Amino acid sequence: MKELEDSLPSTFTTEASRALGVHPRDLYAWRDSGQIIELSRGVFRRADAPPASYPDMIAVAHRVPRAIVCCISAAAIHELTDEMPASVQIAVPKRSHTPVIAYPPVTVFRFDEAPFELGLTSFEAGPGEPVRIYDAARTVVDLMRFRKRLGEPIAHAALNRYLATPGARPALLLDYAEELGTFGPMRGALDIASAR
């Protein structure tokens, strides 16, 4: 592995290693000897890489590059909830192929194409390893959109935490809600939250 130390990033795919001239036989020998760790099918991490805070999210990002971390998974990253979902929740465009990932567990949400990247940002899941995620305001609006599926208490708690953060922008919540077709429920929730 020494000859590729500088070439291989902390996390890489089988395809990326092949592009660097690594034979699959060598790749699996490295895995079996513990020099690399298989995070998911076809996604590997160097054992000597700096620890990643969110290795599951890095694995999913490599498996589905267009996916965006959303809903409760995004709320946990933004510290809008204490909930830890049993699976990585990701959004993919409605017309795209639904990813099938055995590990790590994944829950897929299919979002409309036009506003798909509305509120898109990224966070560092590992040193120098950004992963696509919706910003805090978009996350709150999505939780409100899916409150029947994910739970009203989670949506309202996330809204209250968001409003308590410095730099909270209630008007942005309403802009996103209008774009995503959930203006009424968002407006009502904001009225209740501001009346407290």
Rank of each mutant, 00 (worst) to 15 (best):
I77L: 11
L163S: 04
R149S: 11
L173M: 03
E129C: 11
Y103D: 15
M57K: 07
A158G: 12
S122Q: 13
V131G: 02
Y54A: 07
E113S: 14
F123C: 08
F109V: 09
V92C: 15
E79Q: 15
R132Q: 10
F123H: 04
P93M: 08
T121W: 01
M144D: 00
T81A: 05
P99E: 12
I133G: 02
R161H: 05
G119L: 08
P65V: 05
A136S: 14
F109E: 02
P55L: 01
I90P: 08
P55Q: 06
A76W: 03
A91R: 11
A164Y: 05
L120A: 08
P153I: 14
I77A: 07
R147N: 10
L180T: 14
L118N: 08
S122E: 13
A164F: 01
T107M: 12
V88A: 07
I90M: 14
R66S: 09
D142Y: 02
G128P: 12
A74Q: 06
F116K: 10
P153Q: 15
A125Y: 01
G128T: 12
F111Y: 09
I90F: 11
V140M: 11
I101C: 13
E79M: 13
R161K: 13
A114P: 15
V69M: 08
E179V: 07
A125L: 10
D142Q: 07
C70W: 03
I68C: 07
P130Q: 07
L174F: 00
A91I: 08
Y54F: 10
P93F: 00
V92S: 11
E152G: 02
C71W: 05
F111L: 14
K94I: 14
P51Y: 00
T81E: 08
A59H: 03
M144H: 06
T165H: 06
T98V: 15
T81L: 07
E178M: 03
D112W: 07
R110F: 09
D135L: 06
H62S: 02
V140D: 05
